[in-house]
Amino acid sequence: MTYGNLSDLEESAKRCRRRIIDMVYTAQSGHPGGSLSCIDILAALYGKTMRFDPHNPDWHDRDRFIMSKGHASPAVYSVLREIGVLSDEDLSGFRSMGSVCQGHVDRKWTRGVDFSAGSLGMGLSFGLGSALAARLDGSDRHTWVLLGDGEIQEGQVWEAAMAVPHLDVVNITAIVDRNRIQNDNFVSEQMGVGDVSAKFASFGWNIIEIDGHHMPSIVNALDRSRESSVPTAIVAATVKGKGVSFMEDNPAFHGAAPNKTQYVTAMEELR
């Protein structure tokens, strides 16, 4: 609950975008496209929605956030920097030996990271476990799971999607970053995922479809999902590489770092 209004959140997201580009450029490796597509959502979660104490990231009764597409780690690190859990120095070590900012998010290395991802398809299962634990604890803490739309090709995602409503788990929200691009190419080319909303709905999820870059819609959807009496899947239409013109909608920047010229251009655009 750091930021009072929407324009603060938007400014926060912009700062995070700059950090994402910085990290990937400095490391000369990493995944900028899918970090930029979900960063507005993360800025809203950590800046407003989530019950989280930056001074005590290990607080037992905090909301849990699971970045299931673990390669979008720069988004997580940039927002943890935004709220003061990580430092600029931490971020500058991204992907280098000994850094707290491992290539993929890792709970053993980074305070404030709840699950070690990087192998796709596991985050919603972990979130289900977190949500069941909250229920057993009698706590109203919420679990937020961010999934990629390429990631949902993994069958385990649907094992979990089936189980959440079946077990009457309501204190969980799945957010699908529908940026339509995966490692090799567009999702529709690699393996079409069909109607994502209908799939979740068929198992009993409440569906909210939003523009994943429109801050008022994001904040509203997150608030509504917390109050929902059934689990909510937010399907967020996003643009891969959002905010950097030559990265937008470009499969080449799923997992590639900008060169020096591109870096300068990107930082200009994100001023």
Binding site: H60, R64, R107, D114, F115, M122, S125, F126, G127, L128, G129, S130, A131, L132, A133, A134, D137, Q156, A160, A163
Partner: peptide, 10 residues
Amino acid sequence: IVGAGLAEAG
């Protein structure tokens, strides 16, 4: 992995 989520919460 549901087990992992439960374990993280004690």
